[in-house]
Amino acid sequence: MGQFRIVDAGFMTTVQDLGRYGYQQYGVSVSGAMDYVAAKLANILVGNDENEGLLEATMIGPKIEFLDAAVIAITGGDMQPVINGVSLNLNKSISVNKGDSLTFRGMKKGLRSYIAFTGGIDVPVVMGSKSTFLKAQIGGYEGRALRAGDILSTGLVNNVQFGREIAENYYDYGSGKVELRVVLGPQDDAFTENGIENFFNSEFRVTNNCDRMGYTLEGENIEHKDGADIISDGISMGAIQVPNSGNLIIMMADRQTTGGYTKIANVITADLPKIAQAKPGDVITFKKSTLEEAHMLFKELENRIDEVKIQLYAQAKNKTEATKAKMVKIYNITVNGTSYGVKVEEL
């Protein structure tokens, strides 16, 4: 167990895991990490369960002071993390010392970074999840985004892992152009041929209205046959709503569970991280996919994540064995007021 202090919370930093399931029928949003792939990888890097609580930082990163030593990993969008003035690699687990300070130089690629801590974040599990649901003020740290002065605790550590690294790039977040593959439905028949054609053949731009609830895009008008209103039904992650204004809204982690607007299509699960990392001004295009292809791509992605897990555990195991073979300990010894670092090596 250790603690860290939020010196500055950045633009918006919340505790998330992979979401709160089982309560959508009661009107409780799923929440959870917007970029679930980055969140899983961060947790895997520090030896946690994939679904552990971690920090999701948006646009401007926080400043964190470590009150105890810890092992952390940062994934997702590149906000140029720095420890005590030295740049950090993304997708690598590193060991930090008591008194170290984590800051971010600024967003270079993507929009959201994930910071995982070995042992996870020790916040209460509310309705089965550590995720913060801002609108209902539940979960996470006191049901809200973090603020300067907050002190958070990490969970129990069984097995500290650092030096683990993922070489592979899962997504290229930075190009400013995002192609999203979609499966049509459930209300694609509510649109004219012209409307469907505009949807697939024109470019849309991410507006400033892109939060955890949804991404509003502007672009060509998507024409309805007979209005945008339907009798309210369920909304899945990545559903693309088309209200009467003609703008599109891609429904994200904190979306309402139900809604009364037509949904033309749904972003496939494997492409959700791309939209979660898109920022205002980015250009979005939609490409038609099939259910079969969507399921195949999702399975491939999960298999890749499983492979990374196996590789990292193997790395960690080799390391542990190497350490066992040759125990090296460093002691700080003070003699007559002078400190010495003494390295003791097993023979």
């Binding site: 399931y21 089982g22 309560y23 959508q24 029928q25 009798i231 309210s232 039904d233 369920g234 899945s236 569970t257 139900t258 699960t269 399921h295 999702f298 399975k299 999960e302």
Partner: peptide, 18 residues
């Protein structure tokens, strides 16, 4: 099946394709 969401005239079924 992950969870279900009944609404006025439909039942949304969230499932895990894996």
């Amino acid at each position: 099946i992950v969870e279900m969401v009944p609404t006025y005239r439909s039942l949304m079924i969230h499932y895990d394709p894996l």
